[in-house]
Design a protein around this nucleic acid. Sequence first.
DNA 1: TCGACACTAAACAAAG
DNA 2: TCTTTGTTTAGTGTCG
Length: 672
Amino acid sequence: MMQESGTETKSNGSAIQNGSSGGNHLLECGGLREGRPNGETPAVDVGAADLAHVQQQQALQVARQLLLQQQQQQVSGLKSPKRNDKQPALQVPVSVAMMTPQVITPQQMQQILQQQVLSPQQLQVLLQQQQALMLQQQLQEFYKKQQEQLQLQLLQQHAGKQPKEQQQVATQQLAFQQQLLQMQQLQQQHLLSLQRQGLLTIQPGQPALPLQPLAQGMIPTELQQLWKEVTSAHTTEETTGNNHSSLDLTTTCVSSSAPSKTSLIMNPHASTNGQLSVHTPKRESLSHEEHPHSHPLYGHGVCKWPGCEAVCEDFQSFLKHLNSEHALDDRSTAQCRVQMQVVQQLELQLAKDKERLQAMMTHLHVKSTEPKTAPQPLNLVSSVTLSKSASEASPQSLPHTPTTPTAPITPVTQGPSVITTTSMHTVGPIRRRYSDKYNVPISSADIAQNQEFYKNAEVRPPFTYASLIRQAILESPEKQLTLNEIYNWFTRMFAYFRRNAATWKNAVRHNLSLHKCFVRVENVKGAVWTVDEVEFQKRRPQKISGNPSLIKNMQTSHAYCTPLNAALQASMAENSIPLYTTASMGNPTLGNLASAIREELNGAMEHTNSNESDSSPGRSPMQAVHPVHVKEEPLDPEEAEGPLSLVTTANHSPDFDHDRDYEDEPVHEDVE
DNA sequence: TCGACACTAAACAAAG
DNA sequence: TCTTTGTTTAGTGTCG
């Protein structure tokens, strides 16, 4: 037995190390679960992750090679891959050529499949990308045709056609451009997703696959020339009016995010021969004027252009570099577009997180404020277990303040859990250790809800060691665990307990030995620990005693079996009272629970009413509870608060209120 | 201020 | 001998 446990603990230790070092949680968890550091599961997880990564890399390389080959084969005749295509004449062909290489031929796809370097998901992504590219090709063809039409119309115009027709053409083109833009956006999204999955890496120096073609398609100098010709024929107002559109067309990348700047950059007048780079100085100068000594793209003597990092000794050289290397060409446009997408994604993410935060704060605020009456309980709960010392937390010991703001925020907590995560969280900042009374019985639901949080965040859970131990034991199939298994549960469920093992393990042992509710049973495999619910519940009363008013209230209301007062009921309703129902129900031993509760009540009652002797644990709750205490305890004025707090922290379900009004932790039954 | 409780730390013993 | 497990004691902080 010892050996087994010994090995387990050792593994446990390693897991802890991993956890502290920020290692893979999966691994840790797995290892912990299995009780071995190198547990199959964890190892497999890690291996799979690595394998996936390697596969991604391989797939990416293969895809690149394929694309490169294809590009070389197909484009060799058309033009060199470098796209210095500033020559208008070549613009269209080049763009088309650039595009084709990105589409993977069926043979190539087959090759990829044969190599099996891509996972099904990757393949799917690849296929999607290919589809998008195909679509884009079609659009490009359409675009070509349109250009031809435009040219024809221009010729006609020069021959004496009316400008109105030109406008029509322009609007037509605008619509088309918009379509392209949409396509491009879709493709961009797709690219981003690819990038995130590691399937695609867009290097600044290299033309991004789809981006490049798009950029060329979207910003063809030829088109600009045509546009210029068209616009030049029009009145200034018209040109200005169309400018926007032109901007959109040409600078799709920039336009969306920075319209104003775009307009500057893309200003039609500026674009003479497609060398829009001429304008870049304008932009540069502009930004430079605004920030003479600083440039968002320049810092620490390095060009901060994405992927550049060129060293520029001074600002002047930086400007030169910027104008020369990052002129308004296809590459820069593509990079800009990518950056824009990145920013958009970040903004989106930020918005989501903000929203989430808002919801969390709102939720917590409501919770904490709403029961002004019952704020205490929350605090109690939260602070609950983790005691003070912890709060001071020296880095070495379980340092956290139980109430650290980082406390778990379980938005989702609502429900049966006695201790809603919310309450726990709210507690967060409050350093109080909980008083057991409000001791929060941890329900599996609670833990489950915050599971991920506690698993990953080294936040001290707002539960007492006793509650946690109880939870661990109750969660086990046989309702019994060895010490080492309890350790493992702690480390598995809480990142916080992956550090300072000596401290918290000592505390665990201490609690096991100290509390009568934990019973050591000699088992075949050795000694296991079980929970004596009755005893566990018993503890309550004492603690509760601290809050006699609450107890009284509880008792009174329950004892008499009179309907709860409106306030109490309301509070209960507010505070997930269902606890009992769901949580406790889950317990196989609902009856036990009830009895346990009674025990608690009795104990509490006893505490409050010394006269009553009948409130023995053994007694059925109903019996014990009712007759005994009820009358003696007049309702306190505080009652209002009391019940609420109880409710909040604990578990009141209308049904079972009586049973456990004060149980803080007691009710593990919920644990299932 | 006091009692109760929880947590941490430590010492000690027993067993594998 | 070392490690783990289990018990016990002491000190401290929080809460009611």
